[in-house]
């Protein structure tokens, strides 16, 4: 187990150092092949349908880290902090960085800031990053399927106060599907605003019975407050938002 983690970290550093070419070539290695399956999401995106067939896809084993995002902005200057137009970011884009091309300094709590998940990026920026890797953002349904978790111990982050420190690659154990660093921050998904579009948690009855979020009657698992919280969070977002507790990972079709 420990070995596997080390290998992942090593790969991350290697990839960060050697740049995008190598990463593109090796992408499937640090991606996990999520097997096809049937999934029942907390809120169905389609009225009347509970279960959904999810096709097999590749998903990054862990969130994109700062070193990787730094490589990206080196190569694509239009995504540097001083260059991104306000339409693509609301104002706190990479706010914790020291400058366009300099990461936060190490601290007592974060010894290797380059290995922390990148946060404070807008949906457009996350999307552009994945594009550049010839990948894409995962769909909400794919993310929920891959991240499915019921162990309350592993979901405690959602009920605790404060955002915590963005996760570091491969430190905690992966879930059953081999995915690392879930449920320690929020992550962008491609279609984050498909659910609870009204933003009012209880108005769903009028718009779409399936999405009556405040009413747990429409929810698949009324105990799963972590999923409630994620859906609520996604529905509060606008694509230009850049939040401290919001990072991303990429996906790819088989």
């Amino acid at each position: 187990m420990f070995r596997q983690v080390n290998r992942l970290v090593f790969q991350a550093v290697l990839i960060g150092g050697l740049g995008l070419l190598l990463q593109a070539a090796q992408a499937p290695v640090e991606m996990v092949k999520v097997p096809a399956g049937v999934f029942t999401p907390q809120f169905s995106p389609r009225p009347g349908q509970k279960d959904f067939q999810v096709k097999s896809f590749w998903l990054d084993a862990r969130p994109v880290n700062r070193a990787e995002f730094l490589e990206f902005v080196r190569k694509y200057p239009q995504w540097r902090r001083s260059q991104v137009p306000p339409l693509f970011q609301e104002g706190n884009y990479l706010a914790d960085w020291q400058g366009d091309l300099s990461l936060p300094l190490p601290s007592q709590e974060v010894k290797q800031p380059e290995l922390q998940a990148v946060t404070g990026v807008s949906w457009m920026a996350a999307r552009a990053y994945c594009d550049a890797q010839k990948k894409r953002l995962p769909k909400l349904l794919e993310w929920e399927y891959a991240a499915d978790e019921t162990d309350p111990e592993k979901l405690s982050w959602y009920s605790l106060v404060g955002i915590g420190i963005p996760v570091q690659a491969g430190v905690a154990a992966p879930n059953q599907k081999g995915i690392y660093d879930l449920h320690h921050m929020y992550e962008w998904v491609d279609d984050f605003n498909q659910v609870i579009m009204t933003n009012d948690s209880r108005e769903g009855a009028e718009k779409d019975n399936q999405l009556f979020c405040g009413n747990s009657g429409s929810a698949t698992d009324r105990m799963n407050y972590a999923a409630f919280t994620r859906y609520a969070f996604w529905s509060s977002l606008h694509p230009s938002y850049t939040l401290k507790n919001l990072g991303f990972r990429c996906a790819r079709d088989l």
Binding site: N92, I163, N199, D200, R202, L243, N245
Partner: peptide, 10 residues
């Protein structure tokens, strides 16, 4: 409620 749905930092 709908008018005030607010993300962190907003």
């Amino acid at each position: 409620a709908k008018a005030t749905m607010t993300a962190p930092g907003h």
